[in-house]
Lab assay of single mutants.
Amino acid sequence: MLDDRARMEAAKKEKVEQILAEFQLQEEDLKKVMRRMQKEMDRGLRLETHEEASVKMLPTYVRSTPEGSEVGDFLSLDLGGTNFRVMLVKVGEGEEGQWSVKTKHQMYSIPEDAMTGTAEMLFDYISECISDFLDKHQMKHKKLPLGFTFSFPVRHEDIDKGILLNWTKGFKASGAEGNNVVGLLRDAIKRRGDFEMDVVAMVNDTVATMISCYYEDHQCEVGMIVGTGCNACYMEEMQNVELVEGDEGRMCVNTEWGAFGDSGELDEFLLEYDRLVDESSANPGQQLYEKLIGGKYMGELVRLVLLRLVDENLLFHGEASEQLRTRGAFETRFVSQVESDTGDRKQIYNILSTLGLRPSTTDCDIVRRACESVSTRAAHMCSAGLAGVINRMRESRSEDVMRITVGVDGSVYKLHPSFKERFHASVRRLTPSCEITFIESEEGSGRGAALVSAVACKKACMLGQ
């Protein structure tokens, strides 16, 4: 009897593995994704193909990295998701002549009506938060230079001027797309009239992360975010950046690689679950690469896999709870928690219980395998993109072996128990001629924006502006 049951459990697990095998990517698959990513990057950089390229390769006008001589107080704003952060950054000489960066910050959550109302409502709310922060720190009387981390696709015309191309991540505030974001912020500050600010720089969160990590390690020339969304930036040779005049030196390019796949480059790798996630998203047909990796989508992918296993009578005796059938019910943090389970399955059992399920031991094991399959594919897909960037940098610099540091931020990278190990191992397999160091950014977005502002202020002083 026991043997029969054991055989049935083994057969069930084997069927589960057959279904989950769809998520496995072979090294040849990853090399294919990497080569296609490089081709799209090239198209994004070139003037004649930029418009139709899915990977936009947006110039950021960040050319210099901090040298350690900029000092002063800077205000930093960070808008990239449902939370908005205001930070005071003091850049100065530390002990023994070292450079020191001290920060104080406060988080504000953005109400739904500000995210989806008008641009005026959104930026009025942001300036209200700045006003509140300055009151708390008794700094209303000071006109501070301000660095703005704005983590949406922007076409820069200068370091302090950028046109919002399109909202992502659930934002829909009308009247912002096609307009200068810094102008919208300046107008809102003017409307309030109770404080003055000098907006000197606007950067993407990947750029802010790279600059913040450069402060720790001067070989950091790539910034990457794996959180709600997924994106990367890197220092490109100016001669390859056709959208900006000049051939000397390097400029940081914001790849906006989340949109890779929007022209069909990933079609052969998309599964039924991916198509369902895409169809029910706020932007169907867009940001397809990001939807395979980002935390906004990972939990939902797992939920759809679990429903398939229920329908195949391989999980929960073929019956799903009402909660499990509800879109968004299986949160991405559950994926991390399930994979963090120590082996007694308590954590998995508790999560499934909150979803109205009474799982068996085998159910718990199957749910864990589903989570591992989805998150491992995410790590491997992400590795193909980064390997594409790094191999490109090595080739354009004609280096036999390139040493490089990548600064990384984002909740999936930082909080998932195995993502970074799987990701690092896969990147290294795909970049055999590179020695890569990964560092995690601390308060990256805010500190990085302030350091970019410090560079901009120093330049302005040198130019006598």
Rank of each mutant, 00 (worst) to 15 (best):
E9V: 09
A11I: 13
A11H: 12
K15A: 14
Q26D: 13
Q38K: 07
K39L: 08
R43G: 01
G44V: 00
L47N: 04
A53Y: 02
K56E: 09
Y61S: 02
T65S: 10
L75P: 00
S76E: 02
N83I: 15
L88K: 03
V91M: 04
V91C: 07
G92A: 05
G94D: 11
K104W: 07
D113T: 15
D113L: 12
M115H: 14
T116S: 13
F133G: 02
F133N: 03
K140G: 06
K143F: 02
K143G: 03
L144W: 12
P145A: 10
L146S: 13
F148M: 13
F150S: 13
E157K: 14
D160H: 15
D160F: 06
F171W: 11
K172E: 05
S174F: 03
N180I: 10
V181A: 05
D187Y: 05
D187V: 01
D198H: 01
V199W: 09
V199P: 03
V203S: 00
Y214R: 04
G227A: 07
T228N: 13
N240H: 01
M251R: 00
W257V: 10
F260C: 01
G261I: 04
L271P: 07
L271Y: 02
S281W: 10
N283S: 12
G285D: 14
E290C: 11
I293L: 14
I293M: 07
G294M: 08
R303P: 00
L309R: 00
D311W: 09
G318S: 13
Q323Y: 07
G328S: 09
F330C: 11
T332G: 12
V335A: 08
D344N: 09
K346Y: 13
I351A: 01
S353F: 03
S353K: 07
R358D: 05
T361Y: 07
D363V: 01
R368W: 06
E372W: 02
R377A: 00
S383N: 00
R392H: 13
G407M: 07
G410F: 15
S426C: 10
S426D: 10
V427E: 00
R428V: 14
L430Y: 08
S433W: 10
S433M: 09
E440V: 08
G444C: 10
G446W: 13
R447D: 15
R447H: 10
V455E: 12
K458E: 10
M462Y: 14
